[in-house]
């Protein structure tokens, strides 16, 4: 499968779903597309016919506001139907603007209010250890989210317990709702701080699928008894020139005039948008 092409299609789906739903955190969804594509199509262990398979790897999507990327990927693997995706943010839908546990196949935790996914993941990681289940837990963490104190309780806890079945992937796009993270509340030296709490840290271009897969596979074969952090350097709004690195696109849909730019750059027609 051409994963670059798949990532393109997923961006189209994200935009289409958000536009028709009338809402969506586009910037943060576009920044983690390659991360999710690499995960779901290279290393993740799951059963397409049994989303609750006991031995599945689990993805905890802590940066819940970016869920359109998750939903679109879950649609590609068959966990969410096209009809469900099209019902996004509609009154009688269970596909909401933040993911909710047990409402959709493949959504392993309720997230959205930030700073919660990593602790929830720790519980799963401990349970797997107790039950001797050799499955992995991947937590997709936002960078702005790391300003929440609970993230640091969890970092300490995972490091202290040497949870080597837990991998955190940081979608490090350097922006938060109102501007640059460094200007609002800077995160310090991420690599050093996480290492100091007992994590093994990788760093990678978060839009380069080949490199991401390389790191994810290396991580899988890595026998070090530590939890892992993959710092994925990304661009918020990746793929749309007017959206890239612009804080205003944290939670906004394009105007009529901007719509053409989105359609052009996503290589889709207006008809496709409303299909």
């Amino acid at each position: 499968m051409d994963l670059k092409q798949l990532a393109k299609e997923i961006r189209k789906d994200i935009f289409k779903t958000a536009y028709n739903g009338g809402s969506g955190h586009l910037g943060g969804a576009f920044s983690c597309v390659e991360i999710l594509v690499s995960l779901y199509f290279s290393v993740l262990k799951y059963d397409k016919n049994n989303p609750l398979w006991k031995y599945r790897d689990k993805v905890i999507f802590s940066k819940g506001h970016g869920c359109l990327a998750l939903y679109s990927v879950l649609n590609k693997i068959g966990y969410i139907s096209k009809e469900q995706l099209n019902s996004y943010c509609k009154l009688n839908s269970n596909v909401g603007g933040e993911p909710k546990y047990m409402e959709l196949d493949g959504v392993e935790a309720t997230t959205g209010s930030l700073g919660r996914g990593l602790s929830f993941s720790i519980g799963i990681a401990i349970a797997n250890k107790l039950d001797k289940i050799d499955s992995k837990i991947y937590t997709i963490l936002g960078d702005g989210e790391c300003q929440e104190g609970t993230v640091w309780e969890a970092v300490m806890s995972a490091g202290h317990r040497r949870l080597d079945n837990l991998t955190v992937i940081l979608d490090y796009n350097k922006l938060q709702a109102m501007g640059n993270i460094d200007e609002i509340l800077n995160l310090g030296d991420i690599k050093k701080s996480w290492e100091s709490f007992g994590f093994f840290v990788y760093e990678v271009d978060g839009h380069n699928i080949d490199k991401l897969i390389e790191v994810l596979k290396d991580n899988l074969n890595n026998k070090i008894e530590k939890p892992r952090l993959i710092i994925a350097n990304t661009i918020k709004g990746k793929g749309i020139s007017i959206m890239e690195n612009q804080p205003i696109w944290h939670y906004r849909l394009p105007s009529e005039k901007e719509l053409d730019i989105f359609l052009n750059e996503l290589e889709m027609t207006k008809e496709e948008l409303f299909l």
């Binding site: 720790i122 519980g123 799963i124």
Partner: peptide, 12 residues
């Protein structure tokens, strides 16, 4: 962290 990890444990 304990409450949330507890909930993660309960999900298993």
């Amino acid at each position: 962290n304990m409450v949330m990890a507890g909930c993660g444990l309960a999900s298993c």
